[in-house]
Amino acid sequence: MNPFVTINDKYLYDQGNVELKPEISHQVETALLFNNRYKVILFGAYTRHPICKSYLAGAGNRVWVYPLNMSSDYSYGIRMTAVNLHPTRWWTLVGNATLTYKKYAWIYDHKKQNNRVMTPLFYLGNYLKPADKWNAELNGYWNGKTPLGQGLISPMWSVSIAVSRSILRDKGTVRLFLNDIVCSRYLRAKVINVEQPAHYKERKEATIGISFSYKLQRGENIKSSNPQRESNESKRIKL
């Protein structure tokens, strides 16, 4: 809501909007759980007055970028997940696939505009335990073309890896990670329904790092669980 203007260059100006209204969202989900490993979720959402970054063409080929309350935001779709799959004793798989339809609507120049796209999303996580005290991860995702307010984001994907080892009698963990190992996170966005074409590009740099964690207290022993109870709890709260 900052009302001051930030001049990025002679063509692009940023400004806040002090007249923003609160957005109100309604969501509903229903899920089916199979064998405590597979889940199928149907979901839907409606948001009134969603707040999104918007673009307005001005004089001198300038484009003003500011947050705006759009008319509505609809989305619905299906999500399928699988957890704790074990191809081998030392390999665990987690994955999900989502297909969602999303539609933004707003008024521009006294005309109703919309941005609607069907978007597929995929994620696969591999968790490996090649030796005692050692763990490894290999995770990746792919997102299809995605709408965001007046913007349309091109497909994007990434792969990350990590290796960790338990030390200090399993109370400490050292972890080495590398996010986006092939430098594929290249954000490309196109602005639609404005008087002049607009594009935005940004390369998300790969990151490498090392972390250390330590458990100050081991804690109490975990009691054996009841699979049927876990299933019921999953149906109730893990949607």
Rank of each mutant, 00 (worst) to 15 (best):
Asn2Thr: 10
Thr100Met: 15
Ser158Arg: 05
Ile167Asp: 03
Phe177Ala: 13
Gln217Trp: 07
Ser160Asn: 09
Trp91Ala: 06
Asn96Gln: 13
Val65Trp: 01
Asp180Glu: 08
Asn96Ser: 13
Val40Cys: 02
Ile78Pro: 01
Tyr38Leu: 07
Glu23Gln: 11
Lys201Asp: 13
Arg165Leu: 08
Ser211Arg: 07
Gly58Tyr: 03
Val40Gln: 00
Asn69Thr: 06
Gln196Ala: 15
Asn143Met: 11
Thr146Trp: 04
Lys21Val: 06
Ile51Thr: 00
Gly77Asn: 00
Asn8Cys: 11
Ala97Arg: 00
Lys133Trp: 09
Phe177Ser: 12
Gln15Trp: 00
Gly44Glu: 00
Glu195Trp: 10
Asn139Pro: 01
Lys238Cys: 10
Asn96Cys: 06
Ile41Gln: 00
Thr30Pro: 01
Ser75Phe: 06
Glu220Gln: 03
Tyr141Met: 06
Thr98Trp: 02
Pro130Thr: 04
Glu233Arg: 13
Val182Ala: 15
Leu148Glu: 10
Lys204Val: 15
Met118Phe: 15
Asn35Pro: 00
Asp170Arg: 05
Val174Trp: 03
Tyr74Leu: 05
Lys103Phe: 03
Asn179Ala: 11
Leu99Tyr: 00
Val182Asn: 12
Val28His: 00
Met156Lys: 07
Leu56Ser: 09
Ile107Val: 12
Glu202Arg: 04
Asn8Gln: 14
Thr30Trp: 08
Leu138Tyr: 03
Glu233His: 11
Arg203Leu: 14
Phe4Leu: 09
Glu29Val: 00
Ser234Gln: 12
Arg188Gln: 15
Arg229Trp: 11
Met1Trp: 05
Gly209Glu: 05
Val94Tyr: 15
Trp142Met: 13
Val182Arg: 11
Arg169Gln: 09
Val182Ser: 14
Ala105Gly: 04
Ala136Leu: 09
Ser225Asp: 08
Gly151His: 01
Ser164Gln: 04
Leu12Thr: 14
Met156Arg: 08
Pro67Trp: 03
Ile153Phe: 11
Asn143Arg: 13
Asp180His: 07
Gly149Pro: 04
Gln196Val: 12
Ser213Gln: 10
Arg188Cys: 13
Val28Phe: 08
Leu148Ala: 12
Trp91Gly: 02
Leu168Asp: 03
Phe34Gln: 02
Ser75Asn: 14
Thr81Val: 14
Gln217Ser: 08
Leu168Gly: 05
Thr30Ser: 11
Lys39Thr: 07
Ser211Lys: 05
Ile222Leu: 10
Ile181Ser: 02
Arg165Lys: 14
Tyr74Gln: 01
Arg175Gln: 10
Ser213Ala: 13
Thr98Val: 13
Trp157Gly: 11
Gln228Asp: 10
Phe212Leu: 06
Lys145Ser: 11
Gly95Ile: 02
Arg79Gly: 12
Thr6Ala: 10
Pro87Met: 10
Thr119Asp: 05
Ser54Gln: 00
Arg218Leu: 08
Asn2His: 05
Asn17Val: 09
Ser71Ile: 07
Trp91Leu: 03
Leu32Phe: 02
Leu128Trp: 05
Tyr214Glu: 04
Lys10Val: 09
Thr81Gly: 13
Leu121Met: 13
Leu121Ser: 14
Asn139Thr: 10
Glu137His: 14
Ile222Ala: 07
Arg89Asn: 12
Leu56Asp: 07
Phe122Lys: 04
Ser166Phe: 06
Asp9Asn: 15
Ser75Gln: 14
Leu42Arg: 01
Tyr127Thr: 04
Arg188Lys: 15
Thr6Met: 07
Asn69Ile: 04
Val18Tyr: 08
Val83Gly: 03
Met156Pro: 01
Trp134Val: 12
His110Val: 06
Tyr200Leu: 15
